[in-house]
Amino acid sequence: MTNSPPDALLALTNVNTFYGQAQVHFDLSISVPRGHIVCLLGGNASGKSTTMKIILGLVKPRSGDVTFDGASLLGLTTPQIVRRGIASVPEARRLFADMTVRENILMGAFVRDDREAIAQDLDKMLTLFPKLGQRLSQRAGSLSGGEQQMVAMARALMSRPRMIVMDEPTMGLSPLYVDRVLELIRTINREGVSVFMVEQNASLALEIAHEAYVLQTGKIVLSGSARALKDDPRIRDAYLGGSEAA
């Protein structure tokens, strides 16, 4: 039994997940300490996105536990989990394409009822993401991929979450936007929001993460501080373009 450290905000403990007969997770244990950025690395079909779905309650594990701030999330529906303080930036952003940018950002505050504070937070988002200011009444579907990523992040922040989970936030973005997104994740984190992100691009993720886990076909094969992992030869070979071809 690997007990999660007491300061863990989010902890997955011995999670086993199945799609029908096929097992996706094998005794998966991950913990996200308060105030940290934790990154889950892995290739295609390693079970990364399913980990996101487990946290958000979109998929239920067969065994194991998921706790947030000490309380189990397993019996809760997705909206209830969101109300506990977890916001998400889904894979491929999943904006409401036919709603305006403004409506999309405000949808993030769906769980809140404090109108004035919501309006203030919207202004805050526009300082954090200045480009969105001119786009507010535009259809979200008409934005570029990078701009959509900004909207998705603003939308997630609008619920004033304690934690944000992100599924491949840099996927499909131009290099310029990749740097911008990483910088923003750091900013968000500095303001006290814990971050759990799933990434394929290990070198980028390890730049900003405090800790990282490496997932391979449903099992954690490597974990530790981001700094240590960056120099780990196994990581270098698998993800950072090591000398031998895999």
Binding site: L58, T78, P79, V82, S88, P90, M99, M107, S159
Partner: peptide, 22 residues
Amino acid sequence: KLGWAIRATAQDRDAAMQMGVD
């Protein structure tokens, strides 16, 4: 608010749930 929830659900059910829409 409910109207927004309806429109969001119509466009992307999973994403709406992740915004806290029941």
